[in-house]
Design a protein around this nucleic acid. Structure first.
Lengths: 229, 229
DNA sequence: ATTAACTGTGTCTGCCGGACACAGTAAAGT
DNA sequence: ACTTTACTGTGTCCGGCAGACACAGTTAAT
């Protein structure tokens, strides 16, 4: 598995030439996931995009779990290069780059979840994030925890803002708003603060990304300044 | 669906008495999910815990999606009552209560994801969270965004800290650490900051919850104080 | 020429969610 | 009392999924 992700395959010498490559499989899977969501990615479906049957894929990949891991790391890509800058600016653009990456392949928030083995690209992202905090006086654990907080925020925003098969239950933003409005109308007494909050919210949508990110960065800045003093 | 979650069933008069109840179904499903993870919850499996066949469940629930929604709201439960307190304290204990709730049923982080219809308990949690921020001078949208950030942090921590079928790929924390250590050993040059961060991290595990939460609260406090001035 | 390593294929099993037709049951209408 | 109507649980069937396994064809090393 680690070998798969880090392309440390021993390269066989005998036998027929493989008809396809691991990369081709992953790319086909990514194409499907981009178009129809991660749930549409099945071994059958992937094989259908290649000159090969379903079972042949198992010669390249131990199972679906591993395929998803490989396609995820590939789709994530390497973090873009950015000029060096003060930690807060660096972390901000890093966050935005991450956001863009997730937006390009929204199913990534589904597939890169929980405990899993990390691929080179994912690790490169972490490296870049930690690097931004390297000169701040924060401990290693604090650096890692910091980018963890930011990452989870970004992921959550993507999840919420994206309309995507598999991520939603097939309902639109409309549906949710409408259902919620109906409930709050009949049950207003049970949710007074929520009703109040919603009533002043109209129009100010989709600020969640910036808002949360700035709060987190503010909190970090406080800590960094504390450490310097 | 909204009717299901808010128990607005029209209560039929004719016909045989139902052998089971929606609540019994949800409880059985919760029992399974608690023991073996959300993926182990299938219509077959749930029916197996009840004096009824698989297809009978569809008399109570339109499909699996809805079953998961119902069992999720039930498992979430109502937020515990807490004495009134300053907003930061209130929000902190709210966060910890939420954390405890998720820990009791770790599969909730899986099932309460993406766009979905909200049940009474989930809404009650939001109400409580927003309520903590009611007197801070933050706008309604900002209040909602605030608890969104905190929630996503909590969820992510649970996801990371919990060993659970379905959330993990079947690997232990050991496996991950070992794989990562191996990689960083052979590829240290590519990930200098990460290597540095990891080397000073040993022993200081599981601080992520407190660290991230305090950073977010610090950031919010800054904004609240700003608004007051 | 033979052996050994490797590749792709077809078949099979056991799951899953769900559509549908059907028989049995209980209350309402007559 | 009897029929009608609404409702319940069941068995069968479908398509789709991941994956185990045996097998035949292909290529390089011996």
């Amino acid at each position: 598995m680690t070998e798969l992700l880090w392309s440390n395959q021993p390269a066989p010498s005998r036998g027929p030439k493989p008809a396809i490559t691991l990369a081709a499989i992953a790319e086909a899977a990514i194409r499907i996931a981009d178009a129809e969501g991660l749930d549409a990615v099945s071994m059958q479906r992937v094989a259908g995009e290649l000159p090969v049957t379903k079972m042949a894929l198992y010669r390249y990949v131990p199972g679906k779990t591993e395929l998803v891991a490989v396609m995820s790391d590939l789709a994530m890509g390497a973090p873009p290069d950015r000029p060096e800058s003060p930690w807060r600016d660096a972390l901000y653009t890093w966050s935005m780059d991450l956001y863009d990456g997730f937006l390009r392949h929204p199913w990534l928030v589904q597939s890169t979840i929980g405990r899993r083995l990390l691929g080179p690209n994912e690790l490169a992202w972490i490296e870049r994030g930690v690097g931004a905090l390297a000169g701040t006086g924060l401990s290693g654990g604090e650096q890692l925890d910091s980018i963890l907080v930011i990452t989870s925020h970004i992921r959550n925003i993507v999840q919420q803002s994206t309309t995507f098969p598999g991520l939603t239950t097939g309902l639109t933003e409309e549906d949710m708003q409408q259902s919620l409005a109906g409930i709050l109308a009949t049950e207003a007494a049970r949710f007074p603060h929520l009703v109040a909050a919603m009533s002043t919210t109209a129009g100010s949508e989709n600020q969640g990304l910036e808002f949360g990110l700035q709060r987190i960065l503010d909190g970090l800045e406080l800590l960094v300044n504390d450490r310097k003093a």
